[in-house]
């Protein structure tokens, strides 16, 4: 599966570890949540980085205590219409303050890219035939967003207005509307 990060195809240094495979001392591995919790002491002694894959039915609060031990969290989209991982990502990024890599796996389509970035994903495992151009175009097709407090490159109205001082406004209609006698 190609990996997209920062709008580029990225090298994937991470290896998904089967549950029965021995835990290597070195290298970046992604393990299942259960294994991570069960072998946490051993994991802490590794020199390589560790990430977890969690299903979209898991409450992210289950890993709150271990965020410092994690360099990657992979959230799954079993179907691209199953949007639970958006809320998991949002919870991890906001109230849990997770700052490591947040990877979208499973059914990840270009037309989701904008939303995924906004809720805090920064790495995307995409289908082999996904064109990078189409991905980037879709990811940037909306330059604006109404929702405050989300990430992504989209500007909210506050930011747009801050970037455009009132004297510079080209929107005469708005100015007239607002000055109507009430």
């Amino acid at each position: 599966m190609p990996l997209i990060k920062n709008g580029q195809i990225a090298d994937d240094t991470w290896q998904v570890l089967e549950d029965d495979a021995p835990l290597p001392e070195q290298g970046d591995v992604i393990v299942a949540l259960e294994r991570f919790l069960a072998e946490i002491d051993q994991i802490r002694t590794r020199s390589g980085r560790t990430g977890i894959a969690i299903e979209n039915t898991v409450d992210p609060q289950e890993v709150t205590a271990h965020l410092d031990d994690l360099d990657l969290i992979a959230l799954d989209f079993p179907a691209f219409t199953d949007g639970r991982a958006y809320s998991q990502a949002r919870q991890l990024r906001t109230k849990q303050g997770y700052t490591g890599e947040l990877r979208a796996t499973g059914n990840v389509l270009a037309d989701q890219a904008g939303f995924l970035l906004q809720v805090g994903f920064d790495a995307f495992e995409v289908a082999a035939d996904q064109s990078l151009d189409v991905w980037n175009k879709a990811a940037n097709s909306m330059a604006l967003a109404y929702q405050r407090g989300y990430g992504g490159t989209q500007k909210t109205r506050d930011k747009l207005q801050a970037a455009r001082p009132l004297a510079n406004t080209s929107n005469c209609a708005l100015a007239v509307e607002q000055s109507l006698p009430i």
């Binding site: 949007g83 958006y86 929702q147």
Partner: peptide, 13 residues
């Protein structure tokens, strides 16, 4: 209307 339009978290409910 504005808040719900293309909501990044709640578009695949």
């Amino acid at each position: 209307r504005q808040w719900s339009s293309l909501h990044p978290e709640f578009s695949f409910l």
